[in-house]
Write a protein that binds this DNA or RNA. Structure first.
Length: 419
RNA sequence: GGGGAGAUGCCCGAGUGGUUAAAGGGAUCAGACUGUAAAUCUGACGGCGGACGCCUACGGUGGUUCGAAUCCACCUCUCCCCA
């Protein structure tokens, strides 16, 4: 094997890590070869949805792959879909709010970049907004674009097919979405595009359209999606089963502890970059009982918090978890938010628990506070005494109210009375 | 262009004049059980007040009625069939 070939294989090896599929691999090899020959980095595209600026652990799998490309010396290009963003998802009821606020989009994008910088080298990334080339297109241009793809192929897409069969509405505009996204690849002359398995179709459209426009089609790097904290469906904001990477350490740790045991290996591999062998060893020891799932998960949670925050934060979050869930004690003082009691919450009799709960974050409403008390999950521990269960929903705490009030294990607040 | 069906709470979905804050399931929250979790079981699950109370809610507007998610009219949106 020549050094050239070795170099190509080395690149491919890193690129292949954790991917579901490279489409097509031999073309990718050629592109890498050419990049080395011409000493010209490949252009690697990732599209972003500016409506959802919060990055969660699921996104980091793709971002990590971008990082891999950067480490190999290639050029990454982040496309902010500000224009496609308002083609958006018309399946939502309130189609009136098509009014797009470009400033908000910019702000969202900034938020995204701040978070993404935890993984990629943002300084070296090329950032483009797709309104740059999509906005100036006139109707003729759109027709030309639309002509290069058929309804039949469009209906091959899983969710379109499903919705079509079910009779759920699909607007023509939605058909334009993959085309617009594909046109992005033309505009920036992408060599490679990344995406999760859910993006496979869109990325493939990019290949077709690029060819129609006389470009060499991009190669696709398809990344796996990870299941969310429910262990069942893919991690996503709308399913509320996600862990945001800016989530505070305690919650990030706690949420990780609550994932199903079966997910440990996969998360290890995709999020903390275990090799395939390491993952197998881990899973084997979990299976034969040499490793307790809780310990494996604690270590996983620790590493995740460490990655997105710091080692100290991970340390503290772990301490919190052990104390609260294993030992069933109150959390460490530094992890309890402090709430100062205002005068409107107290009367001669003292302060009512439900009022306090509603005023703090313990309950969304007084009604919920009542229910929690009825459910037997509310406790108060005065500074000078032991923790006691609140059993009466009308119970008041006599002044001065200094102590720790909690609803369940997770919602805890320190009350400070300065009245 | 013609004909038919439909829009219900976070989601799915029952309900066709009062007994419906609206069955059932999912999601969620709390409790029990687990050295984590899952599974299971129990309870809760619009807001406000101490309760028999009030307010808000069944696509929108306006009616009929003592009383409507339920009937009528119009509007908006969607699906299906025919052309």
């Amino acid at each position: 094997m020549t050094t050239m070939e070795q170099s190509i294989e080395r690149q491919l090896e890193l690129i292949r890590r954790n991917t579901v599929e490279l489409i097509p691999e031999d073309e990718l090899r050629e592109k890498i070869k050419k990049a080395i020959d011409d000493d010209k980095p490949l252009r690697v595209k990732l599209g972003l949805d500016p409506n959802r600026p919060d990055i969660h652990l699921g996104h980091t799998v793709v971002l990590q792959k971008l990082r891999d490309f950067q480490d190999l010396g290639h050029q990454i290009i982040l496309i902010v879909g500000d224009f496609t963003g308002f083609i958006g998802d018309p399946s939502g009821r309130d189609s009136e709010r098509t009014a797009i606020d470009w400033d908000t989009v910019r702000a969202n994008a900034e938020t995204y970049f701040d978070q993404a910088a935890k993984i990629i080298d943002y300084e070296k990334a090329e950032v483009r907004y797709n309104s740059e080339w999509l906005k100036p297109l006139n109707f003729m241009d759109v027709l030309a674009l639309a002509k290069s793809f058929t309804v039949h192929r469009m209906l091959e897409r899983d969710d379109f097919e499903k919705r079509y069969k079910e009779g759920t509405p699909i607007s023509i505009m939605e058909f334009l979405y993959p085309l617009a996204q594909a046109y992005d690849s033309v505009a920036i002359e992408a060599d490679i595009e990344l995406g999760g398995t859910d993006q496979r179709f869109n990325l493939l459209v990019g290949r077709t359209i690029q060819e129609r426009y006389g470009q060499e089609p991009q190669c696709l790097v398809i990344m796996p999606l990870i299941e969310g904290t429910d262990g069942d469906r893919k991690m996503s904001k709308s399913l509320d089963n996600y862990i945001g990477i800016t989530k505070n350490p305690v919650d990030m740790y706690g949420k990780t502890m609550r994932i199903p045991d079966e997910l440990i290996g996969k998360w290890r591999q995709l999020l903390t970059l275990y090799s395939h062998e390491e993952r197998e060893i881990l899973e084997a020891s979990l299976k034969d009982g040499t490793m307790h799932p809780m310990d494996a998960k604690k270590s996983l949670a620790f590493d995740i918090v460490k990655k997105f925050h710091s080692e100290e934060a991970a340390q503290s979050a772990q301490g919190h978890f052990v104390k609260v869930f294993s030992q069933r004690e109150l959390p460490q003082e530094e992890n309890i938010p402090v709430f100062e009691i205002t005068s409107d919450l107290v009367s001669e009799g003292g302060a009512r628990v439900i009022d306090l709960m509603a005023a703090t974050e313990l309950a969304k409403s007084k009604g919920e506070a009542r229910r929690l008390i009825k459910g037997g999950g509310v406790y108060f521990k005065p500074d000078d005494g032991d923790e006691d269960k609140i059993t009466d929903e009308l119970q008041t705490l006599s002044q001065p109210v200094n102590g720790i009030l909690r609803a369940g294990k997770r919602r805890v607040v320190r009350l400070v009375d300065k009245n």
